[in-house]
Nucleic acid binder design. Sequence first.
DNA 1: GCTCACATGTAATCCGTTACATGATTCT
DNA 2: AGAATCATGTAACGGATTACATGTGAGC
Lengths: 187, 187
Amino acid sequence: MEELGTTAYVILGMLRRGARNGYEIKSRADVSTRFFWAISYSQIYPELKRLEGAGLIEGEADPAGGRRRQAYTLTAAGEETLHEWLTRDGDFHLELRHEGVLRLFFADALDREEQLELLHSMRAEHERARIELERIEPTARARFDESGDRFPLLTLDMGIAYQGFFIDVCERLERRLTEPQPISGGT
Amino acid sequence: MEELGTTAYVILGMLRRGARNGYEIKSRADVSTRFFWAISYSQIYPELKRLEGAGLIEGEADPAGGRRRQAYTLTAAGEETLHEWLTRDGDFHLELRHEGVLRLFFADALDREEQLELLHSMRAEHERARIELERIEPTARARFDESGDRFPLLTLDMGIAYQGFFIDVCERLERRLTEPQPISGGT
DNA sequence: GCTCACATGTAATCCGTTACATGATTCT
DNA sequence: AGAATCATGTAACGGATTACATGTGAGC
């Protein structure tokens, strides 16, 4: 059997957590895993078929009225595969693409005012992201209270702190650039 | 003229900062921008030709002994394009793919020991990354002292703090999971 | 003589996004 | 009647990685 991509494991994981079809997988991912691993419909539907072909999930027709719908569940093999991934060691995919920091790297080409403007818009972006996460938090907390599953809430709180990290960094830098010329460079 | 991808701006920026050819662009990127925007040779060389075709850079033969080498410089149009990008507003590309946090999201499927193992390996990965950045820091600091350009050093220090953020989060969570069963979920 | 750093490229492939396409049900 | 939500897919494209391919120069 071929190697699975990380996106496949998102699907397996979401099914294990109770999502039943492609639409539900996407809806849930959009308010949770998307902040550290985004997926889209055009990955999900073909992948569901591949996973079924590999015997890791099983789908059955589950029409809602006249609306076509396919309900998937993990097989034992799927459960096992998911567990293997969760406990696998060796390094995992870790990638950041941050155009804001990238611009900041080249910001010596800008004048003071432009530098501040860049920092400000970067901070604003992270503040928007934090607000979005904070809006989700109560729902996540409620789901934790029902299910006892703590990691979705923990990773959400981690995401909020993550945005806070960038917000703080921007704020501090903005202040430093505003203050009268400091002498040294680093922290 | 077609829209430029972010990678094109990395190249323009590196040329502005004094890199002269594809090899130098890559070498410098590998110890700086790579941590928030990775690039590879197979992007650089074709892109250099496209940028030359678009009149944003100019290349001339610059052989080193019998070794073929092409030296590029920014044109006025290239300088302008770079500046436009640095000051552009509207949201920029911001993407994180973190397989560790993703696994953590699904970690309710693991037992306590496996959860701790996951956190530990995640922390180790970020510690490796931090050490790598700390090794680069003196060089970056020296280059700041020579050139007066502060943002490369600032973004490097930011990268070090970034790794520190994840290390702290992991540590705190490890401690929490080790302590006798807490009652509540969130922060 | 060997290895490492310098230097430049192409081809195949993978992964992901965006746009396109369709249709039923529920809510207002 | 119309909009939003539920639900499933395909096609085209773009961006990036990996593997492949080649050759010089400098230092040991």
